[in-house]
Amino acid sequence: MSGSEGSVRVGVAGGKRSALETRRYLFNIIGWLICGFAFLLIAVPLVDLLAVVIIKGASAFSVKLFTTNAIHGGLLNAVVGTLVLSLGSLIFAVPIGVGAGMYLSEYGQNKLGSVIRFLADTLTGTPSIVLGYFSYITMVVGLGWGFSVLAGSLTLAIMVIPYLTRITELSLRRVPTSMREAAYALGAQDRTVAFRVVLTAGLPGVITAILLALAISVGETAPLIYTAGWSTLGWNFHLIHGSIGYLTYVVWTYINEPSSKAHAVAFAAALLVMLVVLAINVSARTVLSRRQ
């Protein structure tokens, strides 16, 4: 499917085209121009978005920004909070997500497997605000945790587990069946085959999945607002009963404040989030496409 096939021309008899052929020839050119334009319609906003965020965000970077908390105009507590919430969510999500992915890949070729697969996809499609509201009524209010790190992390975990599961499943499936058969032939138990053979061989894919999950939780806002709350102070090291700040909240609220100083901080926070998200996604996709 190379571009050279595009040079196939409508039959040119005697160097002269009929009106119909000319029209088809023009249609071909116009059609491809429209397709190229469609690509630009999606590419240009991304480039503009990146340019705006990088230029406005980087110009707001300063030592003070990274060393003071939000109450003094900095982002220190938000950076720490985003790390705490995202890594906290991974503590819950990785064992469950990777475990479920292993189950689906190794033993999930049955009815139960396809039901779990379907429901995992359904959970992926559930709006994050619905999950946030669920956590609000169960954990924040029901269990009385209040706005807290635990409620925020658990909500993010529920969000990313289905992603982790499905990407883990896909990468473990790529491990050749012959490796499993060789291990079983040597008398290995299920556990050994699953963890020592399949998981080891598929580890790069699993790590990619974990990093992609991290990128998703770093960029989330909606499910955190009513679970993690917001604080302008540093984390009080409590798992429950204590709001915590995070970067995406800064982006959301500071841009609606009147002062241009607040806007600059919002862009700086957005740039930090984008740096994490882009670094993870670009490297993950480069690695994945090279492996294929």
Binding site: G99, A100, M102, E106, L119, I161, R180, Y184, Q189, D190
Partner: peptide
């Protein structure tokens, strides 16, 4: 893949534990 392959060396308990982990997803939903 592995389904059916390791019946001889397979332990039912291990597979049940893995299924239990996977069932957390429907449970959450």
């Amino acid at each position: 893949l592995a389904s059916g392959a390791g019946q001889a060396g397979g332990s039912k308990i291990f597979r049940r534990v893995m299924a239990g982990i996977a069932l957390i997803i429907p449970a959450a939903l």
